[in-house]
Computed example of a mutant assay.
Amino acid sequence: MADYRYTAYFENEVLRKRPYLKKEWCVQVLENPIRTESQDGNRFRFWGRIDEFGGRVLRVVTLEDKITIHNAFPDRGFKK
Rank of each mutant, 00 (worst) to 15 (best):
N12K: 12
V29C: 02
P19C: 11
E13L: 06
E11W: 06
K17L: 09
R18D: 03
P19Q: 05
F10C: 12
R5L: 13
K17W: 02
L21H: 03
V14I: 12
I34L: 10
Y9Q: 07
A8H: 07
E24P: 00
R35E: 14
Y6R: 02
F10V: 05
V14H: 03
I34R: 08
L21P: 01
V27M: 00
D3L: 08
N32E: 15
V29W: 03
R18M: 03
V27Y: 00
W25K: 00
L15C: 08
A8D: 09
L15K: 08
C26Q: 04
R5W: 14
R16M: 06
T36E: 15
A8M: 05
C26P: 07
R16A: 06
N32C: 13
Q28W: 09
L30I: 10
T36A: 12
E13K: 10
Q28P: 03
I34E: 09
R16S: 11
R35I: 06
I34A: 09
N12Y: 02
T36Y: 07
K23E: 05
L21E: 04
E13R: 08
D3P: 09
Q28D: 08
N12T: 02
K22V: 02
K22H: 00
M1D: 10
F10G: 08
R18Y: 09
Y6K: 04
W25D: 01
K17C: 07
E11Y: 12
L15T: 14
L15N: 07
K23Q: 12
T36P: 10
K23P: 09
W25C: 01
N32T: 15
E13S: 08
V27T: 07
A2T: 15
P19R: 14
P19Y: 13
A2I: 03
L15W: 05
K23C: 04
E24A: 00
P33S: 10
N12E: 13
F10K: 03
E13Y: 03
W25L: 01
